[in-house]
Design a binder for these strands. Structure first.
Lengths: 234, 234
DNA sequence: TCAAAAGTGTTGTTCGTACACCCATGA
DNA sequence: TCATGGGTGTACGAACAACACTTTTGA
């Protein structure tokens, strides 16, 4: 598809800078974390910031978000979802910029926890988030709220955990998101009732002497259920 | 607040046209309707379109949405909520435009049903929506879906109904949103259990010979419950 | 042998759902 | 007097929440 011949028909209208900012949550060492990086440009160069970039004229906003996420973290587009657009006039004191936010949940290996440091990025615990530039703190709060809402209706944890995970790990993740303890038996019962987990015969003994069975997520069953409109409320 | 001295620090970046488009639902004559208008500019002048306008550099996107809604309908900012931002490159064939959508629910009087015609606007039944320009049909579908989701967790009807309304009216509204019939007794029970309706001693006899009691919405009780985080699922 | 986490069932309560008849009134 | 929509209660089943002990094993 191409622009039609009457291009620049809107040329009396004002153009504005558009950015995307990505709110990237990860789960590692039984804690929910947020990826931030040290801003590379003025103003506020060196301050902590969400991962963001300006959108180019020939780039869709979805692609822009995927691209900046990939460039900064090496992560391929897992569960990248548009959140909200922030468009007050003076949110960036340098110049008018409208920002479209996206958020992403991803599993983080111990290796990745370290490796982002060379990009001047860092995974912060949710309760240790530093002061952020502009309205980025508001964006983070909005994203957490949205994450909680979402977790109520979809088994969200699967994006945040590695391929194999234990049920206690999954429970801890939900407890981090909801910020309250859950009953072990009820949680197991509920999660297993969805019938989207495959039990392996291996155990992870890093958490206890007894060891917990490793499960994987059955993507096919999950897609089938989503298509049916099943509610995954925890 | 003002722009700081290093304005135009981003001057190597590309600027883009930003529009807002409003998806405005109304409820009248026991039907859920959508407000559309005949586009005034090329391309596609005269085709049906959502109510939209370009954002100016000194105007926040929220204000822009409110303003265009007011200019086109005379409605003051009731329940105007941001929906999603559409940013593919060629969605408008004339030029690259990113569009932020907002949606609004409003009660429509018989008078307003007619009066918008002089703006070249028209209230369409949801099942009679004509072909729309660009990706506006997708926007409408997304808005309907979002409306359904929202209605599950908030007593959404109050924005769509006049100050005084009957319970059968409210039920019809929910049936329009959900596109399925609801049980009279269960609906009453549920709606009244929220304790946010004030019964008046007047009856509306337009719908039946017996007449149905008029209720009004107790905004204070409602705000209190929302603050407590109560779930209004129907 | 013991400390530490994994794993397992039952019961009471709440909530949702299904269902049928009488009431008030204007025509 | 009758046709029309408004208004009311109950009973069953499903889902949720609360609760305590046994198992495994490395140290």
């Amino acid at each position: 598809m191409k622009l039609i011949d009457n291009a620049h028909i809107y040329n009396t209208q004002q153009k504005i800078l558009i950015a995307v900012d990505c709110i990237i949550f990860g789960f590692v060492a039984n804690k929910l974390k947020l990826l931030l990086f040290k801003r590379k440009i003025e103003p506020f160069r060196g301050d902590w910031s969400l991962i963001g970039a300006f959108i180019k004229n020939d780039q869709s906003i979805d692609d822009g978000a995927k691209q900046i996420l990939f460039e900064t973290t090496g992560l391929d587009n897992i569960y990248l979802e548009q959140l909200k657009t922030y468009g007050s006039v003076y949110r960036d004191p340098a110049e008018r910029v409208i920002s479209v936010t996206y958020y992403s949940l991803t599993s983080v290996t111990e290796f990745e926890l370290e490796s982002v440091e060379k990009y001047d990025a860092h995974w912060f615990d949710l309760d240790e988030i530093p002061e952020l530039i502009f309205d980025h703190s508001v964006m983070v709060q909005d994203a957490i709220e949205s994450l909680r809402q979402k977790a109520k209706h979809q088994p969200i944890g699967f994006n945040l955990l590695p391929e194999f995970f234990t049920i206690p790990e999954l429970q801890t993740l939900y407890e981090c998101i909801y910020q309250r303890p859950l009953d072990t038996r009820n949680f197991r019962k509920k999660i297993l009732s969805f019938d989207i987990l495959n039990k392996s015969d291996k155990k992870d003994k890093s958490g206890s002497k007894k060891g917990a069975f490793l499960y994987s997520f059955d993507k096919e069953k999950f897609e089938t259920l989503i298509a049916k409109g099943v509610n995954f409320e925890i």
